[in-house]
Nucleic acid binder design. Structure first.
Lengths: 241, 241
DNA sequence: TAACTCATGCGTACAGTGTTCGCATCAACG
DNA sequence: CGTTGATGCGAACACTGTACGCATGAGTTA
């Protein structure tokens, strides 16, 4: 019905004079995050984002140069969700670092679509929020007493661990999300295929798979905490020789 | 000139009867890796891959279900490059694990385009080569003396660290490769912008940036080795209480 | 030798993508 | 009132992954 679209003279059918600033960079980024959270990274297209905001796809290009740039903005925006504690003195640095790491992981699991992007922009990506986070983490290690030249390496080690495990988990969760099942259904459903594939590698079939199928999420939490403790153990050993 | 394309009767102009098995799954995967190494992940399209192999794009679909499946195959193929040492007894487990980790990182840096894929398929991806690798690594930790239930968590910790740091490095290297510069040119060229962006976060400006600009690759190597040692320190501590 | 089967290659087509360009609109300003 | 400059948007381009159906010809059977 093109008649509907024609410039009708009636005040009611005529589209509102679309006030300025209806479309801002902030709103676009926010809506993109909402879309990504809801439908995953494969469903983010400029046109789809456009219709969601009630505009044409090409209008977005007035506020954002690229889809790539949009993604950079989006990634930095979720970094902004992190609330990194300021560096405490004494021996409480470990608690602070643990909290930072835990929050970074939680953020990644909240937005699993970020995993492939981290592999593309990495941490070269220097948005303001990412910079703030890195700086705060460095401060925590400095307060712990690491010498200047080692402070860098120590934070790098921690970040690598957290990003590595969170990325792996996020990829796993994305795959589950795409299937529409819950984590438990997915795990128990795939069990026979997995057992079959690893028949010649019995070592891969760890622990009581029954228990593992029951509380997959709890096991992931435990694994994360275990590794984090080991990494921090290894780093702490450098402080008290 | 469509005349050229028409089914000419001459034996010479007529295309060779294209012997069977000209196109195999193995050849497709191999050529895809070559293309990825040469031009990066953004340049891999089925048509481009097709013309490279002297066939039409759609012909590839006789041997590969999807582009996604092709990528799964490609990822597992590069896992096959790894030569994981068999588990040694005694205290030499640490050397073996170190070598495995180093090789895994080297493989990722050889094929930087793999980083975003690892974030998509993660390690849920159970191709035969990936399984072989995981199994061998588990064996190394078992030989080290980890109890059964902890063996899993220990390997997970190590893998997370290696994947995290290698992924970050790979993303960084991909970005450089796309710019056409060398790593040194890139680093020194971006220095002013970086210094500017981190003016309010002086902690981020680590060490003598002059030396850092001179041997960026060596510094990455050192950082990797440092973190790997810390992670292994933390894990070793669990063995001798 | 002749007929048949069926895996393989490929041309065409479709729906969808990111992005460019030029035109229309309209708030703000002189 | 006239001008300017920012903003929205329709149309178009080059490109993507992939479904479909037809042609070919090697291998097998009669």
């Amino acid at each position: 019905m093109p008649a509907d679209e024609k410039p009708s003279t009636s005040v009611w059918t005529r589209p509102r004079p679309r006030q300025r600033e209806h479309l801002t960079r902030e709103q676009i980024v926010a809506e993109a995050i909402r879309l990504l959270d809801a439908e995953g990274v494969g469903e983010l297209s400029m046109r789809k984002l456009g219709t969601r905001m009630g505009t044409a796809a090409t209008s977005l290009y007035r506020h954002v140069a690229n889809k790539d740039e949009l993604i950079e903005l989006v990634v930095d925006e979720v970094y902004g969700e992190l609330d990194v504690p300021t560096a405490p003195g004494g021996t409480r640095w470990r608690a602070a670092v643990t909290r930072t790491a835990t929050e970074l992981r939680a953020m990644t699991l909240r937005h699993p679509w970020i995993a492939p992007e981290l592999g593309q922009v990495g941490l070269v990506h220097v948005g303001p929020n990412a910079v703030r986070m890195s700086s705060a983490l460095l401060a925590q290690f400095e307060a712990a007493g690491f010498p200047a030249h080692e402070m860098d390496q120590a934070t790098g080690t921690l970040m690598a661990y957290v990003i590595g495990i969170a990325t792996t988990e996020a990829a796993y969760l994305s795959q589950i999300a795409r299937s529409g099942k819950t984590e438990q259904e997915w795990v128990t459903g795939l069990r026979p295929a997995f057992d079959d594939a690893t028949r010649e590698h019995p070592r891969l079939r760890a622990g009581s798979s029954a228990q593992r199928d029951a509380h997959p999420q709890r096991i992931r939490d435990d694994n994360f905490a275990y590794g984090l403790d080991r990494v921090l153990d290894g780093l702490t050993a450098r402080l008290t020789p």
